[in-house]
Design a binder for these strands. Sequence first.
RNA 1: GCGCCCGUAGCUCAACUGGAUAGAGUGUUGGCCUCCGAAGCCAGAGGUUGUGGGUUCGACUCCCGCCGGGCGCACCA
Length: 756
Amino acid sequence: MNIFNYYRDKNVQLLEEMVANGELPAGLDYSRVKVEPPREAAHGDMATNAAMVLAKPAGKNPRQLGDLLVAKMKKLPEIREASVAGPGFVNFRLVNTEWSSVLIDILSAGVHYGDSKMGKGEKVNVEYVSVNPTGPMHAGHVRGAVIGDTLANLLEKSGFDVTREYYFNDAGTQVDVLARTAYLRYREALSENIGEVPEGLYPGDYMKDVGQALAKRDGKKWLGKDEKEWLVPIRDFSVRTMMDMIKQDLALIGITHEVFSNEREVVEGGTLDKVFKILQDMDLIYTGTLPPPKGKEMEDWEPAELTLFRSSKFGDSSDRPLKKRDGTWAYIMPDIAYHFDKIQRGYKWMINVLGKDHGNYLDKMRPAVAALSGGKARIDVMFCGMVKILKDGVPVKFSKRSGNIITLREMIEEVGADATRFFMLSRTPDSELEFDFAKVVEQTKDNPVFYVQYAHARCCSVLRNAKELWPDTDVSAAALAKTDVKRLNSEEELKLVRMMAGWPRYVESAAEAHEPHRVTIYLHDLASEFHAFWNKGSDDTTLRFLIEQDKELSPALVVFAGILWYAYPRGAEKYSDMDVPVVKADTSPVKTVPADPGGMEVPHQDSTVFDPLQKNPAAEIEKLLPAQEEPINKDVDIKPAKPGLKSPTKDVKSSPDKVEVPKVVVAKPAIAASGDVYVQLGSYHDMSAVKRDWEKLKKKFPDLFGTLDMKIEKVDLAGKGTYYRLQAGTTTADHAKEICAALKAAHSVGCIVVRK
RNA sequence: GCGCCCGUAGCUCAACUGGAUAGAGUGUUGGCCUCCGAAGCCAGAGGUUGUGGGUUCGACUCCCGCCGGGCGCACCA
């Protein structure tokens, strides 16, 4: 039960009484009336804005109306005090037993505390993860996965009928590449020497397992056969294997989808034609020519007759092609058909969790959904910000080429599922997030994960001690629900209780606003309140959880705190059986209290207790997008290797106790110190991007580039296409170095010194 | 150029979709262990919420204009 809603209804009831006896005019709209905890606890337990929002329609001034309401409220036995304050807030306090009875609610509801019927059983489809089956889940995917899953949990808890769905693409060229890679690894598994994985195939080692599995299942069946024969069966096998792998990975962080959909079924089921026909019948299809994209120099743009969908009728900026020039489907068509399928399955509300880089997905899909549902279905997209992975404070380079990806599995093994989930939820979804391996496992209070876990550990500790103190006492939630909680009435205790009473409000607001991170904020606040209460026990022994003379009362509070830990974003149903739903945390001390108090050594707060996975982290690329896997080789920015820098050799022998800080030696460039040097700032596929970036840079670093000119160097790299290199010059070698240093410091662009 | 998102303490972020004196952590200053876990707690200092207007009882929140940043803008996937 949400006690705030309860009193909101109570207030509305009072107002209705006032209407009934003529104090207020009839027909008032109460929908904006809210009851909330006041921002300042000193103001009271609860506050309502009723007088302010109803003043105008009621033809009274807010304070006048407030006074009327206060008079009514004061007659209620549950309300101890009420008054009008500020611009017209009505603040009120409840009698203590009202609060302490919340504890009984919590204990009897258990993990269902905070459930509500807000959603009224409405069907919602939450689609998230949706990683294509071409590789394992990696660190960049995790955030969207966690956010989507938690949102689904919250919606479910709030009374929606939620379906967790996963959609994967198994019909494009990517899965063919997957099949070819699998075939190669299959040959390898049958002891063929395959050498390096050729460009265009997936280089990762995970494909070895697929090859092995295939060899185990089919033996030498496919050796020497033509691709035409093996492509389809091996593709199916690989897709299945990869999906199994992904599902296992997801299970590691407690994510299970109910429905898996795939593109192939959509395509082969003929849905595309069906959807097209429907749109045609609605007269939303025509053949026409689109204007060229604005503001973007397109050298190779030429007008073409295309099959277009009148999406602009549904708020899109322009109509969109559904078929390519050659008559085949455009890539958005399967997605549209897939959403049609969802609509047909009865969803009026669909939520997609995507990476921020899919910027215009919603623009493209919303018109189609509107058209195909007759305006009855709604699609929302949550865009998740990027994750910057750091190891020991150093950004981790992410490159598929070298197979250097941090997989979800590695991440979980390193920091644990709970910490991962918590951390991924610690910021608003669309913001960028720094995920520092060292910080996540750091055991200090600047690690919110630990801070919350520590509070939980203390709860466990109390229960453990309670069992020791009173071996015969039942400390299960059910037993504690019978505790005489009315005796909990000190201000300190009630403060904690009020905090717990607020949980249902957080659940609702987080679900409504699609902001699962509010859960972690709540937990942090709750933990903070808990720690504060704990320490009060030092000054005042009557505020301890365990009071030897009073075994009935003591542990009750702890259990509530413990119950709320469930809120840790995981599925409620998984914890049906509970004393205290346990979140992973140390249940035993890892640091002992010294016998001689007064000089306890505490680790420095900035220090870490984490041993990094890799000691040779590479810098540079620092953003991870939950993006689609792609075969290597596409459009890679080609940069010459930096002169003078060798990759660190592994077998450098150095004694561990003599740690040498590696000296950064900047190799002296073999360039004369006169104006005969350019700095190369980037390399692009199209000319307009070069110009655009140059303008940007000039604006951003006027001091650096003010006097320099732009030079564009065109290069043809065999097999890789044409590149335009952006260079600035000429200048001296020293100045060039300065520029590069400054750019590096600003994390802006790469910078290479080149000769004239 | 167009569209979407963002700009809050020195730093990293909140602020319960319009509420009261904008809060936490970090850093800094001081205090608290004979006591349920001191990896904790308490207190001090730190702000014209990028900027200029508007809407109203009331704006970090909504609207408009600027400034600064991110992402997206193909018939590619």
